[in-house]
Simulated scan of single mutants.
Amino acid sequence: MSRPARHSKTPTSVSASSRNLSAGSAVGSGVNLLFFSSSFCDPCIQTRGVLKQVAMLLPDVKIAELDVARDTAEAEKAGIRSTPTIVIAAEDGTEVFRAEGVPTVNQVLVALAKAV
């Protein structure tokens, strides 16, 4: 990435999207939710807690965490501007939801329902 990701504590952007993540991406391998994080991001710790709760409620949901410093190509392809960012994709890889900042459990659950 050409510039470091900024960190966001509360969701600054929640949107529906039609971006298609490639078949080579983690989404293409059956992942429903991508969590873009960075090791020095305090809000990312909160987001991990939210996603842990979601995983307990919906054990079949596949979640992949990608570090923007390590997975730069994937982060650039997904247009990640800040961490944490959650991207939810339909089974075909089409992005249906994106939230920058720490989402609530309810936001993630609603977005996952839209992806089905």
Rank of each mutant, 00 (worst) to 15 (best):
S37D: 00
I86S: 00
Q53V: 02
V102K: 01
P43F: 00
G30S: 13
K62N: 13
L112N: 04
V54M: 07
R70I: 15
P84H: 08
L21H: 10
P59D: 06
A115S: 15
E91R: 15
D42C: 09
T10H: 14
A90F: 03
R70K: 15
A69M: 12
T83I: 09
L33S: 04
Q46P: 01
A115P: 09
A55K: 14
T104L: 11
C41H: 05
A16Y: 13
T94F: 04
G93C: 11
T85D: 01
V105H: 07
V50F: 10
T83E: 05
R3Q: 14
A113L: 11
A75S: 14
S2K: 11
R81F: 08
L58M: 12
R70H: 13
D67N: 13
D71C: 09
R48Q: 08
V61Y: 01
A90Y: 03
F35N: 02
T104P: 09
R6Y: 13
E95I: 05
A64D: 01
Q107A: 13
G101W: 05
T72E: 14
A64T: 01
R3Y: 13
V105R: 09
E95F: 01
V105C: 10
T12H: 05
A26M: 08
R48N: 05
G101L: 08
G30W: 14
V68T: 10
S22E: 00
A23I: 05
D67I: 03
N106H: 04
P103C: 11
L66K: 11
S25G: 12
T104N: 08
R6S: 15
R19F: 05
C41K: 04
D60T: 10
G93I: 07
V68L: 07
I80R: 02
P11I: 15
L57N: 02
P59C: 09
K77V: 12
D71L: 06
E95A: 08
G79H: 10
F36C: 02
V50T: 13
A115K: 07
S37P: 00
I86A: 00
N32Y: 06
V68D: 02
A75T: 04
C44F: 01
K114Y: 04
L33D: 03
V105D: 06
A5S: 14
R98F: 00
A73S: 15
A73L: 14
P84T: 10
V54N: 01
S13K: 08
V108E: 03
A99F: 06
E95K: 03
E91L: 12
I86K: 00
V14W: 02
F36L: 05
T12M: 09
R48V: 06
D42I: 14
D92I: 07
